[in-house]
Amino acid sequence: MGDDLAIEARDLGVRFRRNRRGRRNVKDLFAGASRRSQPDEFWALRNVSFDVKPGESIGVVGRNGQGKSTLLKLVAGVLLPDEGEVRVHGGVAPLIEITGGFVGDLTVRENVRLTAGLHGMGRAEVARRFDGIIDFAELADFVDTPYKHLSNGMKVRLAFSVVSQLEEPILLVDEVLAVGDKAFREKCYRRIDELLADGRTLFFVSHNERDLRRFCDRGLYLDKGALVLDAPIADVLDRYNADYNAG
């Protein structure tokens, strides 16, 4: 595996239970989770290999339940593989399960400090970026409001604003642009354009063909947990659409 890559994946495999979510996180590693295959288990991903160079924009394509979000969580370090390995060179800014990690009883101000701190921002940096985060989220009138009293749209705006301020070289995005009103989506588009122009690496899961064509130059097409095509994004979308229309 080379040091000139942002992401390296080799023969990745992830197994889940059909009747309940399999134990697939870091905590289970210490709890001694069994690796033996059981009849009620299935492979969400298997034999998936690819490399991502710094600055590349990768779109992950496939129907629901084909392993896209599972792959993103492996890259984020949220899940552990049952087979193979994934190496990520550099920190990640994860826009996945976007409102997770915020605390309902804490105010917007307190949540910004907490969440940014958990992502590695020091106090001085949080203070320096605080006004920009709040302005981007359009929450200047709600900084001392408990998070639980925000609307869903406000929560999404706050989460995107915090994570998009991180200076990590790899941006992981899972359908976040499908939420929020049109004006805020356009603001998010412009922010992602800025991050890409700055040389960030993008790993983007979406069903929105327009967004995939706008942001991505290369695609990974997953079907039944297997990587069936790794090619320019236009070719991947053409193949996906042909397969979809064929039923």
Results as ranks from 00 to 15, higher is better:
R36N: 05
R36D: 12
R36Q: 11
S37M: 03
S37P: 00
S37W: 03
P39Q: 07
P39F: 14
P39R: 07
P39T: 00
E41Q: 13
E41K: 00
F42M: 04
W43C: 05
W43D: 01
W43N: 00
A44F: 11
A44G: 10
A44S: 15
L45W: 04
L45R: 00
L45V: 01
N47C: 12
N47Y: 06
N47S: 14
V48G: 05
V48P: 06
V48I: 10
S49H: 09
S49G: 10
F50G: 07
D51I: 03
D51T: 09
D51A: 14
D51M: 15
D51P: 00
D51L: 07
V52I: 15
V52Y: 03
K53H: 11
K53Y: 09
K53S: 13
P54N: 02
P54C: 04
G55W: 08
G55M: 05
G55R: 02
G55T: 03
G55K: 02
E56Q: 11
E56Y: 00
E56F: 08
E56G: 03
E56T: 05
E56P: 14
I58K: 13
I58D: 06
G59Q: 04
G59L: 08
V60T: 08
V61E: 03
V61M: 06
G62V: 02
G62Y: 01
G62F: 01
G62K: 01
R63W: 00
R63P: 01
R63N: 09
R63S: 14
N64D: 13
G65A: 11
G65I: 08
Q66V: 07
Q66G: 04
G67R: 01
G67E: 04
K68T: 11
S69W: 01
S69Q: 02
T70S: 13
L71K: 05
L71F: 12
L72H: 02
L72Q: 03
L72D: 01
K73S: 05
L74G: 06
L74H: 07
L74T: 00
L74V: 10
L74K: 03
V75G: 07
V75P: 07
V75C: 07
V75I: 15
A76K: 00
A76W: 01
A76G: 15
A76R: 01
G77A: 06
G77N: 02
G77I: 05
V78Y: 12
V78L: 12
L79V: 11
L79C: 12
L79G: 01
L80H: 05
P81A: 15
P81G: 09
P81K: 04
P81N: 07
D82F: 13
D82A: 14
D82M: 09
G84A: 13
G84K: 06
E85R: 15
E85D: 14
V86R: 01
V86P: 02
V86Q: 09
R87G: 12
R87Q: 14
R87A: 15
R87N: 10
R87P: 08
V88K: 04
V88N: 09
V88I: 15
H89E: 03
G90Y: 14
G90A: 14
G91P: 05
G91E: 14
G91T: 01
V92C: 15
V92Y: 06
A93P: 04
P94D: 10
L95R: 01
L95Y: 08
L95P: 05
I96N: 01
I96V: 10
E97H: 09
E97L: 06
I98A: 08
I98E: 00
I98G: 02
I98D: 04
T99Y: 11
T99F: 09
T99P: 05
G100R: 10
